[in-house]
């Protein structure tokens, strides 16, 4: 006799597992994005400010005593640091004294108001999104240093962190589903056998139920249920004869 499968119970359990992992994945990802983004943005702004201040301090002597090529050489070295996309130095009138832009200073920067001690977000067409930190040279009377950090790198770092998390959750999810299937099967199989046994008894096929009679020997709830069905079956009221004489 074929054992009945407990599909609905199985489906609901799997759905529960999916829902749980979905919730964990989405909620931790949101938290991760927020945490990594805030942390990196703060760190980048701090680094930019530190670098801008370093260049500003080093620029005083060069601006007052030396050729601007020395200043260009100085800022060229900073652009080699990962994350720094551009550096430019303006004098007190806003004229560009040295910069690292190719093929030229973007119009958006060229046309902006000269700033000496600010942090601004910039969207430069064809270049990307940047956090630009400005620091004054000689309290601003000799100009200002501006350092642009590519926020695309922050997005990339967030993507990498999310990617690693999705990878981990996927592995845990697969293991979880396999474990859930095994556990549900473990629980559902005796219930299915009890159900099959009950159906056979209900049909008056006590002998047909023999293949699953092992259920009666079980000590768990499924065994108790099967024994209860058998008890009801054996002590059921005699069936009322039908009026047309058929059994």
């Amino acid at each position: 006799m074929r054992v009945v499968k407990v599909q609905k119970l199985f489906q609901r359990t799997l759905f529960g597992v999916f829902a749980l992992f979905g919730f964990i994945g989405v909620s931790t990802s949101i938290l991760l994005i927020y945490t990594v983004d805030s942390y990196l943005t703060e760190e980048y702004e701090t680094n930019s400010a530190g670098i801008a201040q370093s260049i500003a301090d080093a620029s005083v002597d060069i601006l007052l005593n030396r050729d601007l090529s020395a200043l260009q050489s100085l800022i060229d070295q900073f652009v080699e640091i990962q994350g720094i996309s551009y550096v430019y130095i303006t004098d007190e009138t806003g004229e560009f004294l040295a910069h690292t832009f190719v093929p030229g200073v973007p119009d958006q920067i060229r046309n902006s108001e000269p700033a000496t001690n600010t942090t601004v977000q910039r969207q430069l067409p064809g270049m990307g999104d940047f956090v630009e930190v400005s620091r004054p040279i000689l309290a601003g009377v000799a100009g200002a240093v501006h350092v642009g950090m590519d926020t695309g790198i922050i997005a990339l770092q967030v993507q990498r962190a999310i990617g690693r998390q999705v990878y981990l959750i996927s592995i845990v999810f697969v293991v979880g589903v396999l474990a859930a299937v095994w556990l549900v099967n473990l629980a559902a199989r005796p219930i299915g056998e009890a159900l099959t046994y009950a159906v056979a008894l209900a049909r008056g096929e006590e002998n047909e139920a023999e293949p699953v009679e092992g259920i009666l020997a079980r000590n768990d709830e499924a065994g108790q249920l099967a024994r209860l069905f058998l008890h009801f079956y054996r002590h059921r009221a005699p069936s009322t004869p039908s009026t047309d004489g058929s059994a």
């Binding site: 601007l68 090529s69 020395a70 260009q72 050489s73 060229d76 040295a98 690292t100 832009f101 190719v102």
Partner: peptide
């Protein structure tokens, strides 16, 4: 050239 030579 975007370096010390060009600036010079």
């Amino acid at each position: 050239q975007a370096d010390a030579y060009g600036r010079s």
